[in-house]
Design a protein around this nucleic acid. Structure first.
Length: 400
DNA sequence: ACTCTGACTCAAGACGAA
DNA sequence: TTGAGTCAGAGT
DNA sequence: TTCGTCC
């Protein structure tokens, strides 16, 4: 999902759009989150034992997603962040073929999983089970109920969650969209946060900083209109169109600058390199990005209320077999952060800086030669901040 | 010579006791 | 599955 | 930091 290769390209070609920050810097802010994506991630990641099964209640129903949403949401609230979870609605027609193929592959994986279980091959079980993950309507309902009990607002998007997040952000209802999916920018989110949940608790050897991306800076430094940016994303490869062999972000950008429009750029490409007709609906993809079905922000009333403690306990302990002591601790953490009150932001005491315009010399020139000694890949990596000289390197597995 | 792409590989959440 | 990191080789 | 546990 997302736009192929967009993040490295922006880090390198439009570095002024990327700001390094921390979750703590978001105190007091309203953040939109793609709930469907979180749900999927929790199902994939929250697993246990050799069989790599999900957590489950006494009735055998999966609870990994409940565990995941609970701890993540409490963490956000403790940080003074006011989350808004946005759920996917009906997928767009253009995605139907992709989704159908995905479902087919999952069914194949179901078979592989069964076979692996039979043979007891733990490694095969692990691999297959990660490919069979499906978010069910029941799971979506579970999470929505949990969030209501926590007093956190839920938004049901008519279509793609990212599109509605963007609408809320444009309308000023939320400060930013927190997502890993770069097409949030293509949908027009003025600000997006990447790696917001990539904390020290993650098992990955290196934790990455949170990146705050500003759409207006993307457009300014790339020196393109939003319409051209959308075309650029389509040419790079997005969820709604195929990709073209040999065309990555760098080439896509040059082609657009040279020829002016997506159609003109595409016309210069060898026709049999293009994806098949049904996967190359340029104008439909463009329409989906520029005016997707989305919530009407004026009809969305965001409220954060105190949790329904009794309801929460019943839901977690009675219904889903959570440990009573742990739930009590969660409730305490929740009341503690409500007692701390609505933390205000330090920045609000200062006058907002006038957005400085980027000097022409700073604008990205796709045709300029790169400075020797600082290859693109290297610089993109270094955006991540200080060098961790003392850190242990990734351990390499020995061949057996 | 220098980029850029694409193929390959690995891990995937959050928490807290030790 | 996806994304990120890495690298060899294609393409200019 | 690492590693087992959450349900």
């Amino acid at each position: 999902m997302g736009i192929k290769g967009l993040m490295p390209f922006l880090s390198d070609s439009a570095p002024s759009c990327v700001k390094e920050t921390k979750m703590e810097a978001m105190t007091g802010r309203v953040i939109a989150i793609d709930a469907s994506m979180c749900l999927y991630q929790f199902l994939v990641a929250v697993r246990q034992g050799a069989s790599q099964s999900n957590l489950a209640n006494e009735a055998g129903e999966v609870t990994s997603h409940i565990q995941g949403f609970l701890s993540r949401t409490v963490r956000l609230l403790e940080c003074g962040i006011r989350p808004v979870y946005v759920f996917d609605g009906k997928p767009p027609e253009l995605k139907r073929e992709t989704l159908r193929e995905r479902e087919e592959r999952k069914q194949e994986a179901d078979g592989e999983l069964a076979a692996a279980m039979e043979s007891g091959d733990a490694d095969a079980i692990k691999k297959a089970s990660h490919r069979t993950v499906r978010a069910t309507p029941q799971m979506n309902a579970d999470v929505q109920e949990l969030l209501r009990l926590l007093g956190v607002p839920v938004v049901l998007a008519p279509c793609e969650a990212e599109a509605s997040c963007a609408a809320l952000c444009k309308a000023g209802k939320v400060y930013a969209t927190a997502t890993e999916d770069m097409d949030a920018l293509t949908f027009g989110t003025p600000k997006m946060l990447k790696n917001l949940f990539d904390t020290e608790s993650s098992r990955t050897a290196q934790k990455r900083p949170v990146f705050e991306l500003t759409l207006s800076r993307v457009l300014e430094q790339l020196d393109v209109s939003m319409a051209t940016f959308i075309d650029f994303c389509i040419l790079c490869g997005c969820d709604y169109c195929g990709t073209i062999r040999g065309i990555g972000p760098a080439t896509a950008f040059k082609l657009l600058k040279l020829h002016g429009s997506l159609e003109a750029a595409v016309a210069t490409i060898d026709a049999n390199k293009l994806p098949p007709e049904e996967q190359w609906q340029i104008s439909e993809a463009r329409a989906l990005f520029s005016s997707p079905p989305q919530v009407d922000p004026s009809q969305v009333d965001l409220k954060w209320t105190s949790p329904d403690v009794a309801g929460l306990k019943s839901f977690l302990i009675d219904r889903h077999s959570f440990n009573e002591g742990r739930v009590t601790k969660v409730v305490e953490r929740l009341s503690a952060c409500r007692a701390a009150g609505s933390q205000s932001r330090l920045e609000s005491f200062f006058t907002a800086k006038a957005p400085k315009t980027l000097p022409a010399s700073e604008k990205f020139n796709p045709f300029a030669k790169r400075a020797a000694g600082s290859p693109a890949t290297k610089r993109a990596r270094e955006i991540g901040g200080g060098s961790n000289t003392g850190k242990a390197k990734v351990q390499r597995k020995q061949l057996s």
